[in-house]
Design a protein around this nucleic acid. Structure first.
Lengths: 253, 253
DNA sequence: CCAAAAGTGTTGAACATACACCCATGT
DNA sequence: ACATGGGTGTATGTTCAACACTTTTGG
């Protein structure tokens, strides 16, 4: 079927990734250092062009694997080892957002357990996990001891902020916080995820009762561990439940 | 700055609109009948191409005004007369979703008060409000008395379902339900919005206490009305609060 | 008077917080 | 022994669902 290609404008379409993990009690995002203009030397979110016959989710999964080695798994699928939660976040299409040309970027949000080390992708640019506070907050970004020293390239600060906000609100009413944990984890480890993502302290006793009392949230594996020190803790896997009812309550700020 | 346009694939970018309203106790969506191939004669969501120098939100607002005469207002802005809530929903980019070419569609969700009548836009194709159940449910869609008789064109059934789901969950924890009401409304009218969107019955007494007891949700205007019959009811405007804490509770299904 | 919708009071169950207290390990 | 994190019990307050009851209109 013929169609006049001059009847509509042409766009480039990219996917950008907000990849979040919890490291050393802080919520961190994956950042790559740009080599080429525009914004050479600045940190940015990983991402790339969508291919001609590629679905948006497939493009996001491909970029995720290129940058981290993680495979994506669809929501409510058994958590495989080396797999991350991946979902569409939002789309950014300001005509001026890329100085080269008109680019519409479909941002995705990925949540991953703490990984041994970020691995350089097919292109060997530098990659690192940076605390989101350093990436977003101007004051800390310009502190001399901060490892990032300028705002993110393009509109990536906005995209990252939206991704963080999505993660913060979603762990409230879904079991998504388990995506930050390894396959087997303790209640205390899960609690530290909530504390890092929300930036608050939670009562360990009430948290324990809450998560173990929500049917389908956690499944005991039978094993125990003392990797956190102290009394051995039961190990759990994520259960089948995806929505939490009643939700976890985020304390007032 | 030169850039090689053959280095990346070209896409067409459209906006599609899920415009919802509550009419005669039912949640309804705006549908347009297609004149041209593909899917001639089938119902579809309103939408169109994003222009070369147009932001995504601006394109959605333009299409909304062309189809309905409604202006869009940003979140948490005073509700103007003839203005609708508009927000980005999600982006759909399956390579096969449009048989003509590669089209990425950025769907938006609009919530509007019940309007006198849908008005034909710049192009004079037919437009109507259809109950979302008729548009989505195969069984009712093929009943002889249903006014729509085939599934929506393209992947619009999926987009509509996602928009309805977004609206259903958002009125739970935000004051968005007021976007379905006229500027001044009663507690009973607001309750009927929740009942239509969720498809449930709510206790009028508890609902009244809940919404009037949430600070910033409703502001009394001083007036009263008996347009629903019975004892005169106070009139309210939407207050400044956008998030509802605690949320409205959707009864179990 | 009766029907209909608005609004208030009350009660018992569910759930949240705060915190006292005990348990099982490593050093 | 003691520090550390895991886990249970219990008191107190808040919120919610259910429903009896009163108020103010139209017919």
């Amino acid at each position: 079927m013929p169609y006049d290609p001059s009847a509509f404008p042409h766009f480039a379409v990219t996917v950008d990734l907000v990849v979040l993990t919890v490291r050393r009690h802080a919520l961190c995002a994956l950042a790559v250092r740009r080599g080429e203009p525009p914004y050479p030397g600045r940190w940015a979110l990983p991402g790339g062009f969508v291919r001609a016959d590629e679905d948006l989710a497939a493009a996001a999964a491909r970029e995720l694997e290129e940058e981290t080695g993680l495979r994506a798994h669809a929501p409510s699928q058994p958590a495989l080892p080396n797999a991350a939660h991946l979902e569409q976040l939002a789309t950014y299409g300001d005509p001026q957002r890329d100085p080269r040309m008109r680019v519409v970027s479909v941002a995705h949000l990925a949540l991953a357990p703490d990984l041994p080390a970020p691995r350089a992708g097919g292109d060997a640019h530098s990659v690192r996990w940076a605390p989101v506070d350093d990436l977003l907050d101007q004051d800390t970004a310009f502190r001399h001891d901060a490892e990032v020293s300028a705002p993110l390239a393009f509109d990536h600060a906005r995209i990252l902020a939206d991704g963080v906000e999505r993660a913060r609100s979603k762990i409230e009413y879904s079991s998504l916080a388990t995506a930050f944990c390894p396959q087997e984890f303790t209640v205390g480890e899960l609690r530290r995820v909530y504390e890092a993502v929300w930036g608050v302290a939670l009562d360990p006793r009430n948290f324990h009762r809450k998560v173990t009392g929500t049917p389908g949230f956690l499944v005991p594996t039978g094993g125990t561990t003392t990797r956190q020190g102290g009394r051995p803790a039961q190990l759990f896997r994520a259960g089948g439940a995806t929505v939490l009812n009643p939700p976890m309550l985020r304390p007032e700020v």
